[in-house]
C-alpha cells in the first residue's frame, strides 16, 4: 500500500520540487552574473530606501544580501519555508481524504487491513515525500552555494532543515482537519488558507513590538530563521512545541478516522 501511495504522490512531489529548484537556479545564475562592487552598491542603495519593518520581515536588517548565501538567509529561507509548508499542507489535506472523495475507500476498506493501517501508510508516504523534498532542495543548494565559495555549512544546514518544524505540523494539522470532511476540494482550500493566514500573522507580528505576541498564533514561528541566524543554533523550545503539535494531531487523526463514517 505504501508503495502505491508513493507512486501516486510522485508526480506532485516532482512538480513542487522542480518549481522550487528552478527559482534557486535562476537566483544562482543571477548572482554569478552580478558585477562585483557595482551590483553590490546598487543593492545596498535599494535596501537603504526600504522601510525597516520590511527589512526585518525578511531578516535583511541583520544580513547583507550581496552574496548568494546572504540572499539564501533572507528571501531564500522565506521561500523554502513558505513553499514546503504549502506543499505539506496540501499533501496533508489530500492524502487520506482522497480515498473517500474518490469513493475508492469502499474497495480499500474491504481489504484485510485496519483503518489504522490505512492512516499509517498515508502518514509514512507524506513524511517520505516531505523529507525527499527537503533533501533534494538542500543538496541542490549545497552545490549551488559551494560554487559561490561563501557557504557556512552549519548555518546553511540549520536554515535548510528548520522549515521542517513548521512543515510537519502543517502536514499533520491539515490531515487532522481533513478527517472532518468528505471532499478534498474543501480541505485543499482550507489547507492553503491555513498556511497563508499563518504566514500573514507572522508578518504582522514582525511589524512592531506592540504586536509581537501575534507570532505565537502562527505555525511559522516554529521555524523562526532570525533566531538561527543570530544564535547559529536550533531553538529547542520550537522543536519541543513542533513535536507536541505533531503528536497531538497524529493522535487526533487516528481517533477521528477510526470512528468516522467512511461513506
Amino acid at each position: 500500500m505504501l508503495k502505491r501511495e508513493l507512486r501516486i504522490t510522485k508526480k506532485g512531489l516532482i512538480i513542487w520540487t522542480s518549481i522550487c529548484l528552478l527559482l534557486f537556479f535562476i537566483t544562482y545564475v543571477t548572482y554569478f552574473n552580478m558585477n562585483g562592487n557595482e551590483s553590490s552598491k546598487a543593492l545596498k542603495e535599494m535596501l537603504a530606501i526600504m522601510p525597516d519593518e520590511l527589512l526585518k520581515m525578511f531578516n535583511m536588517d541583520i544580513v547583507d544580501i550581496d552574496t548568494v548565501f546572504g540572499w539564501f538567509k533572507t528571501e531564500g529561507y522565506t521561500f523554502i519555508t513558505l513553499f514546503t509548508c504549502l506543499y505539506s499542507a496540501i499533501l496533508g489535506s489530500n492524502i487520506l481524504l482522497k480515498e473517500e472523495s474518490d469513493k475508492t475507500i469502499e474497495f480499500l476498506h474491504s481489504k484485510p487491513i485496519t483503518r489504522s493501517n490505512i492512516i499509517s501508510a498515508k502518514i509514512w508516504c507524506g513524511l517520505i515525500n516531505i523529507l525527499i523534498m527537503f533533501t533534494v532542495i538542500t543538496i541542490f543548494n549545497i552545490i549551488g552555494m559551494s560554487i559561490s565559495n561563501n557557504l557556512e555549512i552549519k548555518l546553511f544546514l540549520l536554515l535548510s532543515l528548520t522549515p521542517l518544524l513548521s512543515a510537519l505540523p502543517f502536514f499533520f494539522i491539515s490531515m487532522y482537519i481533513s478527517t472532518f470532511f468528505k471532499k478534498t476540494s474543501t480541505t485543499n482550500s482550507i489547507g492553503i488558507g491555513f498556511v497563508f493566514v499563518s504566514y500573514f500573522l507572522q508578518i504582522i507580528s514582525a511589524i512592531s513590538d506592540k504586536v509581537d505576541f501575534i507570532k505565537y498564533t502562527s505555525v511559522f514561528t516554529l521555524s523562526d530563521g532570525r533566531n538561527i541566524i543570530i544564535n547559529n543554533s536550533l531553538n529547542y523550545l520550537a522543536i519541543l512545541i513542533s513535536i507536541t503539535v505533531v503528536s497531538i494531531s497524529c493522535y487526533g487523526i487516528y481517533r477521528r478516522y477510526n470512528n468516522k463514517e467512511l461513506v
Partner: peptide, 8 residues
C-alpha cells in the same frame, strides 16, 4: 454498510 463497518 453496517455489515462492512463503513458506517457506525
Amino acid at each position: 454498510k453496517c455489515i462492512m463497518n463503513q458506517i457506525n
